[in-house]
């Protein structure tokens, strides 16, 4: 404007100072808003609304499951260790209905049978052999087409004597059908078409229809898995050497004491050898 004195640009430091003040003002404002709305140290004006929303989404089942998980930490006492889990869609289809603890009937061995789910997929034990189909067992990792290991449980730490901790948390021994030089996986994952379709429509199916579909998932699956000795013996179906187990681990697995205890003895008493 005519007559208006010439205005000068602010020095750059002014913009920096202004920016810092704006950040401080904004932080104070956010803190005040939090204080007034949700903070337990303020009037918490929005807390009743938050509680109302949470109440509407509340599930008694979910609450109980979480509470039980909390209690399990205390009951267990020896530290419940969390391990990485596979994404839901990469798990075998069995996991749509079954968990990592599928066995519950036989009181004597159910926990031991469940222990094996760390090492192999359900089909390894429950696959029904078919005439003309050759099955071989390899390490399978849904996140890695060609897992190289080292795999958990295959060797001992020479210093501590414990099983060696490994990076690969997901590889399990799994059956494959041999077709010429190629191997085709004998298992389905939840990403398979049949599994995806089932998950989509299962709530719409009648109980009979659901049973029918479940039969499809259990084709070539036998209810009773292999006996211990089918794997835990010198000529078992699992070739521990090819699977990468160390020599002393192979000896332990092939001559496993547990197998004898479970199959030969009804009761196995610990005498008072150590009582003082």
């Amino acid at each position: 404007m005519p007559g208006e004195p010439k205005r000068l640009e602010h020095p750059k430091s002014v913009y920096v100072i202004g920016f810092i003040f704006k950040i401080i003002t904004l932080s104070v404002l956010i803190a005040v808003i939090y204080q007034i709305t949700f903070s337990p140290h303020g009037p918490a004006v929005l807390v009743p609304i938050k509680e109302k929303i949470e109440e509407s989404q509340k599930s008694a089942i979910l609450d109980e499951v979480r509470q039980q998980e909390e209690y399990e930490k205390h009951r267990h006492f020896h530290h419940v260790v969390e391990y990485p889990q596979l994404p839901e869609n990469m798990r075998p289809v069995c996991y749509i209905c079954h968990s990592d603890y599928p066995h519950s009937k036989n009181k004597k061995v159910r926990a031991m049978l469940n222990m094996h789910t760390q090492f192999f997929v359900c089909e390894t034990c429950h696959i029904e052999e078919q005439p003309g189909m050759s099955v071989i067992y390899k390490w399978y990792n849904p996140l890695n087409e060609n897992p190289k290991g080292p795999f958990f449980g295959t060797s001992y730490d020479t210093e501590s004597g414990n099983l060696v901790e490994v990076e690969d948390q997901f590889s399990k021994i799994s059956p494959f059908y041999r077709s010429g030089d190629k191997f085709k996986s004998a298992i389905q994952i939840q990403d398979s078409d049949l599994a995806q379709d089932y998950v989509k429509v299962r709530d719409k199916l009648t109980p009979e229809q659901r049973d029918n579909v479940k039969k499809k998932f259990h084709v070539h699956i036998k209810a009773k898995g292999h006996e211990c000795k089918v794997c835990h013996s010198r000529n078992g179906i699992l070739d521990f050497r090819t699977l990468g187990f160390s020599a002393n681990r192979i000896i332990d697995l092939e001559q496993l004491n547990i197998k004898g205890m479970v199959t030969k003895y009804e009761e196995f008493y610990i005498p008072n050898l150590f009582s003082e």
């Binding site: 926990a111 031991m112 414990n162």
Partner: peptide, 30 residues
Amino acid sequence: MCHKYRQIGRIDEKGRKRSYFVSENIYANA
């Protein structure tokens, strides 16, 4: 011999997950 495997456990009659796993490495430092 049995309890060192992380998947040893079961779902009990009341539907609660029971883990019987005892981590050798953690227990040795507890």
